[in-house]
Design a protein around this nucleic acid. Structure first.
Lengths: 192, 192
DNA sequence: TATCTAATTAGATAATTATAAAAGTAGGTG
DNA sequence: CACCTACTTTTATAATTATCTAATTAGATA
């Protein structure tokens, strides 16, 4: 995980109110005013904290009439919590830093054809991450993809979908559970 | 883990400089000026950050002449990181809050004889925690205790050392690794 | 003792942020 | 349409904190 994301993740948990919200949501979905009531705080404060948690992918939400039910993305919590344990083992040259929007654009232009095919696979870790992220933009956060569907999707970028699939897992952009694939929300919170 | 400790733990990790320090120490011990040099910061800044990390039990140190070598307590990191995953499952009535110094003193007075023997074992979780913590004050942070020595130590409080030993593990004040016992620095950072 | 080195403390500044009051928005209902 | 409810945005304030410079402490050595 990129260092900045890791910092944001722990910053999100480094607040008593947000920890208490997590404790509440662990027991099941709740709407904003219910959270405010249980914690003795005002609704705007809850909005503020939910936004912080959402920014790091910890919140799922479902709307019912006027009421929004917030729930905890436990998978994201788990992956985020464990990320610090593997710090430095990313095979990277040193500590990873954020990539600027310009760099990102240039990398994508260099590695993809006009038709969107992957020309070749970057060796440099930083570029690899940008390329993998780019290919995930057509997938949906929270949706579960069977292996066959995953293969079909990746084939649009390159014949060797198996390598791509493996790389996605290795870089932790996706995780696999009994042959089904899902986006890792901790790495990909920026995807809408 | 007490909620406040959990907040402090994540606050400690919610800073880019401290995450980078952890990344460095993961590779081996370093002294203050070396860390400052590698990160491009001044020594006082490193002192500041090391103090934050030490407060939550993440730093071990060894002195050699004038130089202090800091290293990472990886076990503490691991236990702290995983604590959030078990939030709410502490069997507690609700969210645990800090115990005041007065409460603590009163609980200890009630459950121990003048000679330091444990009169009976509290049922209420809050009191249980205080009692267990109290008995650990004679142990050393970072030291490894063989089972036999552990039993001897606990016998000074109660004949039924096996129950005490089990409770210490269950409440995560200690952890066991191939029949050796060690204090959990995340729970017990306040011990000296 | 004087001196050197490494770490810490004290004090100052600039940046971040948790909270709430007040105003605004968006969807649902009479 | 007017009205209600739930959430969000804006703005302000108070508290926290990351960083530095300058001064201080602590230990080792000559």
């Amino acid at each position: 995980m990129q260092l900045n994301k890791m910092v944001e993740f722990h910053k999100a948990l480094g607040d008593l109110t947000r920890i208490r919200i997590i404790g509440l949501l662990k027991q099941g979905p709740l709407h904003g005013q219910a959270i405010a009531g249980k914690l003795g705080l005002k609704p705007p404060t809850i909005t503020h904290h939910i936004a912080k948690l959402r920014e790091v992918g910890l919140i799922k939400e479902r709307r019912d009439k006027n009421t929004i039910y917030f729930s905890l993305n436990t998978k994201a919590l788990e992956m985020g919590a464990k990320a610090i344990l593997n710090i430095g083992s990313g095979g990277g040259d040193e500590m990873e830093m954020a990539v600027t929007a310009e760099e990102r654009e240039s990398i994508i232009k260099n590695f993809f054809t006009k038709e969107g095919k992957l020309k070749n696979y970057p060796a440099q870790r930083k570029k690899k991450l940008v390329v993998l992220e780019h290919m995930l933009k057509g997938l949906e956060l929270g949706k579960v993809y069977p292996e066959k569907e995953m293969n079909e999707y990746l084939k649009q970028f390159h014949e060797d979908y198996a390598t791509l699939r493996r790389e996605l897992i290795m870089c932790q952009f996706m995780y696999r559970e009994n042959n089904q694939y899902e986006l890792n929300p901790v790495e990909l919170w920026w995807l809408k």
